[in-house]
Write a protein that binds this DNA or RNA. Sequence first.
DNA 1: TCAAAAGTGTTCCTGGTACACCCATGG
DNA 2: CCATGGGTGTACCAGGAACACTTTTGA
Lengths: 222, 222
Amino acid sequence: MAGMQATNTAGYDAPIGLTADPVVFTLLDGRLCVLLARRLEEPQRGLFALPGGFVGSSEAPEQTAERKLREKTGVGSVHLEQLRTYADPVRDPRGWLPTIAYMALVRPETLPEERPVDRDASWHPLDALPELALDHAVIVDDGLWRLHARVADKVWFVRKALALLTEPFTLRQAQQLYEALRGEEVDAANFRRDVRATGLLEDTGALRSEGPGRPGRLYRRA
Amino acid sequence: MAGMQATNTAGYDAPIGLTADPVVFTLLDGRLCVLLARRLEEPQRGLFALPGGFVGSSEAPEQTAERKLREKTGVGSVHLEQLRTYADPVRDPRGWLPTIAYMALVRPETLPEERPVDRDASWHPLDALPELALDHAVIVDDGLWRLHARVADKVWFVRKALALLTEPFTLRQAQQLYEALRGEEVDAANFRRDVRATGLLEDTGALRSEGPGRPGRLYRRA
DNA sequence: TCAAAAGTGTTCCTGGTACACCCATGG
DNA sequence: CCATGGGTGTACCAGGAACACTTTTGA
């Protein structure tokens, strides 16, 4: 099968298709995870892979990524950011098959209980990834890199990442999320100052106690 | 012709091809310019467009961008950075035809005197662009955005952008380049401090006088 | 009453901007 | 000698990192 390709009417070489692969992150039990699903088709059937698939001919690739995500994992509408395109002619044994990679960050509950069987769609901690199909390990890596870059921007963090928390939330929850996404610890005092300085948080006035210690104020995204 | 597509052996929809479009910038007479060439084929024959073309089936898209650049404009090997992929199914009237865009920054002499006829391959100042084919105006815009982001990084500027100057050069030349790329003026004292702080410049010891005023020191990239 | 967490304030450092000021050259 | 640009130094400001210190809870 290797080296297969198509030729269009104008006589140009054409890829055998175009795929879109979403790299979807979440935070589960304090660990950063990616969403993976088993391949049901050859090649590499049974291996874990990004839950992407073929772009239809009258479809925007972002829509494909979203649709495949829904079909393979049950995850609903999310905001996808284009990562980059992988088009090495030998990246897929089926033939010339470029893929456009996307990145998203969602809450873990977005992955529903009732979901397609046989696919084992599930969250995998980044520090314990299984073997991945094709070049998907590289794509996940690039996605992680992009995620780190985004999170470094406090405004992006408050607007996008804090959507992972159920409102209202304490600043401690926000900080734990931040630290998990960044992969490093930060000073609590500075974190609270920075995040409140964005002006994007709304103080609900209520308090909540989590374990020992003084209860924390509850916030909502403005 | 609209809506044309291909179907591969596995029954999936396939694009009618894949193109690679390089957005090549240079500085000419103090103005930031892009490299454009006229289309010799339908659709939109005669319109200016990015000097890209179809990716061959056993070719990495970066190679295609480089090859097309050479064929259409005579511009030799350059370092291309992937920008993003445009895959809207209706972006090209010929049918479903995604393109991967690349960005580069080269010296104006890279465009040779003897070059393919009929194509009018030439530099066009960004503030006076002709009508562009397809969605190429958007692509140029995204390229410019990326260029600004890159130049903001002093180290990138010294390593990549300063290659546009013929060595040795004065810091004033470097500053004028910087200002043209950024599109805004900067303080000369601060610029020289920042750029020397990178440690990537080598003082040749020689001086050069350009017009009135004290002659400037000549530098080389280390 | 003690540990743990919330919350406030201060210091320090760094990177960038603005700008004052001297030096060297051509006209 | 003066306009012009090269070159040095300094003051200032903003954002971030480190940390001291107070407050409020559960055990």
